[in-house]
Amino acid sequence: MLDVVDLTVAYGPMEAVRDVSFQVREGAIVTLIGPNGAGKTTILNTLSGVVPVRSGRILLDGRDITGMSAHRRVSEGVIQVPEGRQVLAGMTVRENLEMGGYRRPSREAQRDVARMEERFPILGERRNMAAGSLSGGEQQMLAIARGLMARPRLLLLDEPSLGLAPLMVKAVFEIIRQVHDEGLTVLLVEQNAHLALATSTHAYVIESGKIVLDGPADVLRSDPSVISTYLGQTV
């Protein structure tokens, strides 16, 4: 579904991502793991079209979308749930959901708002509250639900577990598994490598803007270098 070919991204003279190539197959959950500042978020932002590419290509179903504007990518079904939730804090929960369906016909979007409120009852209960008043976990639910409102084909999740209580982390990953089971393709960036590898089908390890290792998630889970670097504390 997604082919990234020789992607290089730079902020001024500093290259944040160098010659990165990877694939996400239809129906897969693919994880990018790696230390802070490795370029994972940059890659997602490049896929969303909010950070420009220096060189390389991004293909969606074989079609080059490298130069496509951010809002058109949303119409194409490439949806990012950004790091730190980024809910629209001053707007209500319901308005956040509505904005998630911004590019869809409003009647359809309204139906999906109702569906999301059913799926995430807490969002239904709090529909008229400011999104900023929700707890961190609730905000993450809202951010994911808002992403789903766009009817994604490829969901980009950036650090969905960041700053959440363990119980909430479990709930969030349960949702990720569910939407994947429903047929959604997911590209995940996650610090919690243990959980990420347990959830995904394939993984790429990124260090200093380069892919240093990749393979099926369960193979990487038993790779000695991955264990020592990323799973160290939990083994």
Partner: peptide, 22 residues
């Protein structure tokens, strides 16, 4: 809908972009 999009951009233009707002 557009009015709400104005508020969304006012809050956070990068998030608005990720939501598909032009």
């Amino acid at each position: 809908r557009v009015g709400k999009a104005i508020r969304a951009v006012a809050e956070n233009d990068r998030t608005a972009r990720l939501l598909g707002i032009h």
